[in-house]
Design a protein around this nucleic acid. Structure first.
Length: 481
RNA sequence: CGGGACGUGGCGCAGUCCGGUAGCGCACUGCAAUGGGGUUGCAGGGGUCGCGGGUUCAAAUCCCGCCGUCCCGACCA
């Protein structure tokens, strides 16, 4: 229902603003269990649209869906040394079932590599069985110390892709391909620009050989890790003895990958686009792309206006537009405007007696501006506007990111930039964990990625921004979520 | 898990210092008018004051413990 209080502004308190946007748009709420969230219909609709877009892209690249169990024998987690070290501290463990203590405790999956490779080893015998390209949509649990709605919750929804290949090159290709899929999805569906690249060893997934990531800059100039794709080498195959007979007749361990994105993306969407009036949702993912608000005084007017609104609703639906007609009689139009604005609905169509007479409707854009447009050809008009808003949101976010990026920084500039407004700092890195740790201790910024070629600076840095020794790669530093 | 703040009808808050039996705004219900950017008026309903224990004739208020939320750290999708 409509609230009477303005949101805290982004500049006053970004965290408070973030929480208030979620509350006003009715995206999620806290559950009675610490750190867990209830995803409400307005939030879940966004997730469903994300799922639809991603699922289609996964299938278009040859993947198939399956489902693996929630419970994993505790011993499985321990089979891969780095993996258990990384995840054991944050697992929830079931020790009792049916009133009895279990012989072996069950871990509630924090991620499913272990159970999946255990199964893969049963299913894969020959090079002819490869590649295996699998995905699952699931919930996972990680006992995080500090939680925030969507960004870090104890339980969250995600997809995890798991693939097995005959060669190292194929696995590497797959890991990069899926990073590309994520990037396309983030740019085109979420309208959220990302920088893709390789993670440093300290940020690598526990058990991976290489981790690729997509990083997005939020409106508070902190970076959000939006998705990761891992080349797991033969690490899990060796731990779970996932072997196959090669074409030449030998025996080899499979080469595998895993990749995932989560409901965290909804947090990224919020912090990329929303404003001090509430949620701004990109049209591609919006529950309703258009809301029609009829305006009338008398019963006669109401009948005419609602009839016209219903006709428009059908016309837009037929054109594939997700549209809602708000016929609530107990709310004035202005109150409805505020409510739908807070919910992030991209466009509002106002339709009153004056419009009927003129053969027009008024179209108001969530990000500002409204104008009368003819009823003739409305669906095409609206579809154009939806596409153009989708582009505008991406371009605005992209421009904001570039305006808050610093290239070729010196040590002092890095410090000042991060201590000031913040953003992405591009600079040389010597490759040592010591410099990485020192920079973190000094500035709180971490290496987000060693960016892919297209994101790198025109002039490659020659020296490490911190120690001055020769640089092995350009790195992007930022404070992160 | 360390530091800080907070927890009072659905939401936002006052009352807590100085103990005396709970109040305001919004929301909600009813009626009437109103209706192109948060509509008025009148009349209503709703609260074990986060939970548990203690002190007291008496606890939202004082004391102890716990739980939760938010912020800042350390850890992380």
């Amino acid at each position: 229902m409509s609230k009477n209080k303005a949101l805290t502004s982004r500049s006053d308190d970004f965290s408070a603003w973030y929480n208030e946007v979620i509350a006003r748009a009715e995206l999620a709420d806290h559950s009675p269990v610490r750190g867990c969230m209830v995803i409400r219909p307005n939030g879940y609709a966004i997730w469903e649209h994300m799922q639809q877009d991603l699922d289609r892209m996964f299938k278009d690249t040859g993947h198939e869906n399956a489902y693996f169990p929630l419970f994993i024998p505790q011993s499985f987690l321990a089979k891969e040394a780095e993996h258990v070290e990384g995840f054991a501290p944050e697992t929830a463990v079931v020790t009792h079932g049916g009133g009895k203590e279990l012989e072996e405790p069950l871990v509630v999956r924090p991620t499913s590599e272990t159970i999946i490779y255990a199964m893969f080893s049963k299913w894969i015998q020959s090079w002819r069985d490869l590649p295996v390209l699998m995905n699952q949509w699931a919930n996972v649990v990680r006992w995080e110390l500090r939680t925030r709605l969507f960004l870090r919750t104890t339980e969250f929804l995600w997809q995890e892709g798991h693939t097995a290949h005959a060669t190292e090159a194929e696995a590497e290709e797959e890991a990069l391909r899926m990073m590309g899929v994520y990037r396309t999805f983030m740019e085109e569906s979420i309208a959220m620009p990302v920088i893709t690249g390789l993670k440093s060893d300290s940020e690598r997934f526990a058990g991976a050989v290489r981790t690729y990531a997509a990083e997005a800059l939020m409106q508070d100039n902190k970076s959000l890790q939006a998705g990761t794709s891992h080349n797991l080498g033969q690490n899990f195959a060796k731990a779970f003895d996932t072997t196959f007979q090669t074409e030449a007749g030998g025996l080899d361990h499979v080469w595998s990958t895993s990749w995932g994105v989560s409901t965290r993306l909804i947090g990224g969407l919020i912090m990329t686009h929303s404003d001090d009036n509430g949620l701004v949702c990109p049209p591609r993912l919006a529950r309703y792309q258009v809301v029609i608000v009829p305006i009338y005084r008398t019963d006669e007017q109401r009948a005419g206006v609602v009839e016209a609104a219903e006709r428009i609703q059908l016309e837009l639906r037929a054109a594939g537009i997700r549209v809602h007609l708000d016929t609530r009689d107990d709310m004035k139009p202005g109150a409805k405007y505020y409510e739908w604005e807070g919910r992030g609905t991209p466009f509002r169509i106002e339709l009153g007696p004056r419009d009927l007479e003129a053969g027009t409707v008024v179209i108001a854009k969530r990000t500002g501006g409204k104008e009368p447009v003819p009823m003739e050809g409305l669906a095409a008009n609206v579809n154009e506007r939806l596409e153009s808003l989708q582009r505008e949101l991406f371009e605005a976010a992209h421009a904001r990111r570039e305006a808050n990026s610093l290239r070729g920084a010196t040590r002092e500039q890095l410090r000042e930039f991060i201590a000031g407004d913040g953003g992405f700092v591009y600079a040389g890195w010597c490759g040592s964990e010591q410099c990485e740790a020192d920079i973190k201790a000094d500035t709180k910024a971490t290496i987000r990625v060693l960016p892919d070629e297209e994101f790198r600076s025109a002039e490659a840095p020659g020296t490490c921004v911190w120690c001055g020794k020769p640089s092995v790669a350009e790195a992007v530093w930022a404070k992160a979520y």
